[in-house]
Amino acid sequence: MMQSMAVPPFERFYEAHGAEIFRYLVRLLGRQAAEDAFQETFLRALRAYADLRHAEHLRAWVFTIATRVALDEHRRRRSPKTQVTDCYLEENGSGLATGDDPPAYAELAELADNLPHTERAAVVLRYGYDLPYADIAAALGSSEDAARQATSSGVRRLRRRMT
């Protein structure tokens, strides 16, 4: 019989993923909007937490919630590009993408900043956080093929810009 891991106390889950989710949201939304999105992400997680039956894929699960919150925020905004760029520039000198960030993340994150939202999320999740396509698909609310496509078209776009 497969034994499923018990759902950890929320505090443990929050401690384990809070910081990386915050960094991810700063990357997608800029510092200021990331704070609201962070709160919203973990409140949504908390609302759903009591119904979780096992502890598998918790990391992918919370990235999914964060991605949806971020995409909702993008949809809500009128002129997202300017704001995101502004926020990012503001943050640029102050310790983003340092320390315990995934190694591939630092250079990638900066490059990915001007991609369309879905492609940016896909590229950062795939190469920054090493999530498999199935999890990225769940995070984007799309099929696995669409997640692959978003990732590779994001990468193609980056290549075109670099040449």
């Binding site: 018990a6 759902v7 950890p8 106390p9 929320f10 505090e11 443990r12 937490y49």
Partner: peptide, 18 residues
């Protein structure tokens, strides 16, 4: 809190928060 939190979660629900 390590063991204590797991016990609390089993008894009262998993949404245990400091």
């Amino acid at each position: 809190p390590e063991r204590e939190l797991a016990t609390l979660a089993r008894a009262f629900g998993t949404r245990v928060l400091r």
